[in-house]
Each structure stands twice: as C-alpha cells, then as structure tokens.
C-alpha cells in the first residue's frame, strides 16, 4: 500500500523548514523509527523518523526546498 508522508508541524509557529538532506534513497527499505530526512528549522536540524516500516518509493521534494508543515515529502510503500 502506498502512503504519502507529510512534513509534521515541528512547532506551533512553524511556517516552513528547509529540507537539508535525504537520509534514504528511493527504493531503500526503511524501518519504523529510522530517520528518513533532515529539516532545518530556526534552532536545529531535525531528523524526521519514519513512523512505519516500508520502502521509500518516491522523494517528492529536493534538498534545499522550503517545505511547509503538512506538505507531502515522500511516498512510502508499506505492506
């Protein structure tokens, strides 16, 4: 089953964050709890963990992109 993953709202006033790095390539398996990508916000770089296991099917955004909370970032193929 395909599941679209969106950027969580990392803090209440957050308007956007910068995608600094993908930590998984397309086609790579991902375990729940493993970091999938990095988002830089005002204070730190946040490594966003996958909340379920699967295969990273598609990276929807590129490194350097500014992303708003709720916007789709990736497609995960789950069982």
């Amino acid at each position: 089953m395909e599941k679209q993953l969106s950027l969580p709202r990392l803090r209440e006033e957050m308007t956007s964050g910068m995608l600094c790095a993908w930590l998984k390539e397309e086609g790579e398996p991902v375990e729940a709890g493993e970091p999938l990508y990095e988002i830089e916000t005002d204070k730190v770089v946040n490594q966003i963990e996958a909340t379920e296991s699967g295969v990273l099917k598609k990276q929807l955004r590129e490194e350097g992109d500014e992303i708003a909370p709720g916007e789709p970032v990736a497609v995960l193929e789950t069982e």
């Binding site: 969580p8 990392l10 709890g33 970091p35 990095e38 830089e40 204070k43 730190v44 770089v45 946040n46 490594q47 966003i48 963990e49 909340t51």
Partner: peptide
C-alpha cells in the same frame, strides 16, 4: 547549523 545540533523527531 553545526553537525552536533541534530535531533530526532518522531511524530
């Protein structure tokens, strides 16, 4: 951000 300012986030 320097590399030591990385944190994990689990929604």
């Amino acid at each position: 951000k320097p590399e030591w300012l990385r944190v994990r986030y689990n929604q």
